[in-house]
Amino acid sequence: MATPTTYVSGTVTGPIEIRFTPSGLAICRFRLTEVPRTWDPTTRQWQDATPIPYVCTAWDDIARNATESLVDGTAVLAHGRITPQRAA
């Protein structure tokens, strides 16, 4: 069964890293932080919830475009699969 895809909107936090495989395939990684907002009915205002950090990986043409287009602080909408965090 395929892993479902999802959308995450957030802000790029930090530098964009790009690497190439021996065959020349581009791979880029960047950090994305999503800050969910929740409605507080007592104050009748939106409140920022706990930020959720992601490490995003893009391949091939998308990796090249991301490296040329994204900088720290850019708002983005990412589409892909969320995989469990691996221990370092």
Rank of each mutant, 00 (worst) to 15 (best):
P22W: 14
T13D: 13
I16L: 07
I82M: 09
R86P: 10
A78F: 11
Y54E: 07
P53L: 10
A78W: 04
P41F: 13
L32N: 03
N65S: 08
A75D: 08
T83D: 15
W59G: 11
G14A: 06
A26N: 04
T11M: 11
F20C: 05
P36A: 11
W59S: 05
T43D: 12
A26H: 01
G80T: 00
V55G: 11
T6C: 10
L25Y: 08
I82C: 08
C56Y: 07
P41T: 06
G73C: 06
C28L: 05
A2N: 15
T21L: 07
W46S: 13
A66G: 02
T38V: 14
I52T: 11
T57S: 14
I62D: 02
T21P: 05
D40A: 13
Q47K: 12
R44K: 08
V76Q: 01
C56D: 07
E68W: 05
L32Q: 02
R86G: 13
G24M: 07
A26E: 02
A58E: 01
A88R: 08
G14I: 00
S23N: 11
L70T: 00
T57Y: 07
P51F: 09
R29F: 11
T6A: 11
E17C: 05
V71R: 14
D61V: 09
G24D: 06
A63Q: 00
T33N: 14
P36N: 14
T11K: 15
W39R: 12
L25H: 13
T83P: 02
S9E: 09
T67C: 03
R37S: 13
R64P: 00
C56A: 15
E34C: 10
V55D: 15
T57G: 11
P4M: 13
M1S: 14
V12K: 02
T50E: 15
I18Q: 11
A87H: 12
A63P: 00
T21Y: 04
A58L: 06
I52D: 04
R37Y: 04
P51V: 06
A75V: 04
L77P: 02
C28P: 00
R19T: 03
